[in-house]
């Protein structure tokens, strides 16, 4: 009985309908949260006592960095669910993640570099966060490369699932080895995120942005997963209804 929800969630037509219905429930809150976060972060929050107005980059940099990691974990978790229970829905979710994750990793790198210029005096510093973001981008690119070079969707799903799981085990190891490496070679970086002393006027907009980006990601994921599901369920009857082909023929 307790597993009914799991099986229903795993049923493609049910998931498709659910995803269609849920998308606006994530998209609109995402827009509102981001709007509130932007007003709070750009207008209401006071300038930082050290970094002046330059710190306002945090309101897009931190959510991008957060998504880059979270999307990878979602991708690997759903890949594992797909491998273990042979669940098409999980594979569709996993396949939807890669492009979103890679683009936000690139964004986190770009905004990190733009922030680094005024703070460090150079666009690129081998700062542990930037370095592990870069390695994460390579992991995403490898995943996308593997996916693109396998033509059969089912095999691409399973092979890239193995890669995603191997990658997610390695992500913390890579992150901490980079921190360890960095601590030997230079003094701790000037850039400090999420200081515990951050006043509420700065912190609340950041939390709003983080929540907004997360909701935005879920909405994107639901849209993409529907498309991926249609590609995987070529011969199922429900696709006729879902694709909007009315009984005209």
């Amino acid at each position: 009985m307790a597993w009914v929800w799991f099986h229903r969630f795993g049923s493609p037509p049910h998931f498709y309908r659910l995803a269609t219905r849920l998308t606006p429930w994530f998209a609109w809150p995402a827009a509102l949260l981001c709007l509130a976060g932007l007003i709070g972060g750009l207008v209401l929050a006071p300038p930082d006592y050290q970094q002046g107005d330059g710190f306002r980059i945090i309101y897009v940099h931190a959510p991008a960095a957060w998504l880059s990691l979270m999307v990878y974990v979602v991708m690997a978790t759903s890949a594992a669910v797909g491998l273990i229970w042979r669940m098409t829905v999980a594979y569709a979710v996993s396949a939807s993640c890669a492009v979103i994750g890679a683009s936000f990793t690139a964004l986190a790198l770009a905004t990190g570099m733009l922030w680094g210029r005024p703070m460090w005096g150079t666009y690129w510093e081998w700062d542990p966060r930037l370095t592990s973001e870069l390695l994460l981008l390579f992991l995403y690119l490898g995943y996308l490369g593997l996916r693109n070079s396998i033509d059969d969707v089912g095999r691409a799903d399973r092979a890239s699932a193995v890669l995603a799981i191997v990658g997610v085990v390695n992500v913390p190891i890579i992150h901490y080895s980079v921190i360890w490496w960095n601590s030997l070679h230079q003094a701790p970086s000037v850039m400090k995120f999420g200081r515990p002393t951050m006043p509420a006027a700065m912190l609340v907009p950041l939390l709003l942005m983080l929540a907004g980006f997360t909701a935005y990601f879920v909405a994107l994921l639901l849209i993409r997963a529907r498309g991926e599901l249609l590609r995987r369920e070529r011969n199922a009857h429900w696709t006729a209804e879902a694709a909007g082909a009315t009984a005209t023929g």
Partner: peptide
């Protein structure tokens, strides 16, 4: 193992393996 059955893999194998090997390089 992941790339063994691909016809064209070119530099894909390097892209898959090298980021995962970063800790080996560092330590």
């Amino acid at each position: 193992g992941l790339t063994m059955s691909l016809k064209r893999n070119g530099s894909l194998l390097a892209l898959l393996v090298l980021p995962l090997a970063a800790p080996v390089l560092i330590f």
